[in-house]
Design a protein around this nucleic acid. Sequence first.
DNA 1: GACAAAAGTTTAAACGTTTAAACTTTAAAA
DNA 2: TTTTAAAGTTTAAACGTTTAAACTTTTGTC
Lengths: 329, 329
Amino acid sequence: MNIHDVAKKSGLSVVTVSRVINNSPSVREANRQKVLKAMEELNYQPNSAARSLVRGKTGVIGMSITNFNDSFYDRVIRVVNRKLADQGYFLALSIAENEVEGDNFLFQRDRVDGIILLSPLKEEEYVAELKRKNIPFVLLDNQFHHEDIPSVVVDNYQGGYEATRHLIGLGHSQIAYIGGPSVFLSVAERKRGYVQALHEAGLTPFGTEYCGFTVSSGYEVAKKWIREDRLPTAIFSGDDFIALGVVQALREEGIMVPHDISVVGFDDQEFVGEFYPRLTTVRQPEAQMGNIGVDLLLKLIHGEVMPPAVTKLAPQLLVRESTASVRKT
Amino acid sequence: MNIHDVAKKSGLSVVTVSRVINNSPSVREANRQKVLKAMEELNYQPNSAARSLVRGKTGVIGMSITNFNDSFYDRVIRVVNRKLADQGYFLALSIAENEVEGDNFLFQRDRVDGIILLSPLKEEEYVAELKRKNIPFVLLDNQFHHEDIPSVVVDNYQGGYEATRHLIGLGHSQIAYIGGPSVFLSVAERKRGYVQALHEAGLTPFGTEYCGFTVSSGYEVAKKWIREDRLPTAIFSGDDFIALGVVQALREEGIMVPHDISVVGFDDQEFVGEFYPRLTTVRQPEAQMGNIGVDLLLKLIHGEVMPPAVTKLAPQLLVRESTASVRKT
DNA sequence: GACAAAAGTTTAAACGTTTAAACTTTAAAA
DNA sequence: TTTTAAAGTTTAAACGTTTAAACTTTTGTC
């Protein structure tokens, strides 16, 4: 059942039917009704492959994600989804995994009108490929420098700075930083903020450790410090999961947070704010990130030329229960 | 740049090029090489809209999800993604939200070859629509009865039964159940298992509460019980989030898990096993669920007729630290 | 070296839309 | 009324593939 059937049924030409489908104004009202009725009766829906073929547009925006069981990503994705829907686009999510070739599928000029890369796995590779294929795309929360591509990130420097200032304000002077993998720009930026805050206060960094963004690696780092009998009085974790692991390791040794040691996380994972000890953390502005990202992408798609730029958004420190004034010894 | 350009460049016809693209055997090896070379040089990729149009197949499987920041869903989705990729299909995820019409987009016969519904939001509505549109689909973790549609669920009855047996085995006799929203089949089934286990042991249910699948609602229920001074010695929560809320509420009142009260969860959320107290929980066989679901869907797509049936999978009890022998009073 | 069969290639039509250009009807103006 | 402009409709071509059927070349047999 196709547009010709509708034309036949309504006694008009396919072009008129097409006009009705596309809300063209140049259709006599009486005829519009006839067509609408015929479409209704036949339960007709235009074939999207045919449409895409002739128009060269799909109405689909692809988004490649690696991780979604994570509140930060969850929030960004939902905002993007909603905003795109408002603009008449459909968001097709693709899960990027090392072995799975899903993105090869998505990264085709004729399948999507544009692509959003959220913390992509093989960032450099993807960026090169999309450029080569001439597919409009934006980067969200990218981990490497791409000055020539519209990208939106949180100001990680500021996040690290504020988290550390908060600890200093509580009287801490022995503050350690545990970051994620050191290759990431975000990890380095958070550290830069941490160092700067300490510097301004005339303090020296207690030390930095790099590990994975997981509970278990935070756990390991804290255990190591305990073994070495070398503990700070406050820890800035570049990630909530790491922070949770740290808290767990300390607890197992009878070291209580925040009584003995203060801990700050990053990202405001869903229930770190609900579960003991409620974690002080740095929240990223996911809504802004998603909205700005979509705006940029749509502009790109509509051919607007923009000065390529990195948009940096301000993070927000959420003070909860895992940080307290330094204990007098 | 299209197939005609490749044909011209390689000195052969478009049909031959098409044959090469589709790995048809009836192409002389020398010509195949010519075509391959031309494709390579032109950086050619076949237009998928045109392909879909003529073949009536897209190679896309849609999956409607509501919630993904959840380990259970995460695991199922990843398995499905991998398995579909292995079979040459692309998984397009669509986030179903009340206001967002994404699924209307996905639910079109010419956009996808099939659909997987994972715990759909408006289950009845979706099922009716997909049936009407004659789109092959399967249900995963569905919450209502649909005997005539291929669906895969965990045996929730058994999950409730085993969790409760475990608590009984630890000497508990005052065991409460906190389920999710009572409309859900899964919630009722878990309760049925809970009641049956108690019954077999000659015990009477301590009581049942229904609430949302969230930390805060678990918290509320526990607080209410505390206010009423009416606490069981063990609690079976139909969800890990609820369990976490319960633990938190109890802790705030100085009631320790598992010392004073034992708690069992459901779903094995990512870090309930890493964070204190490591939660005893019921794990669903996500891998099986995803694999079987994909198998069923592909059979449906290939026109195989199957006796429509609900596949019930066995859950697995993971005993950790949140359950202990009942305290002698 | 002629002939048949097999292998490989091409022509032509189809998939279901949209769009520019041509045509026809209707409404307004003279 | 006729003329003209505006409004509405249709014809024809295009989008980039695949596929059946027709055709041509190659290979093998006698």
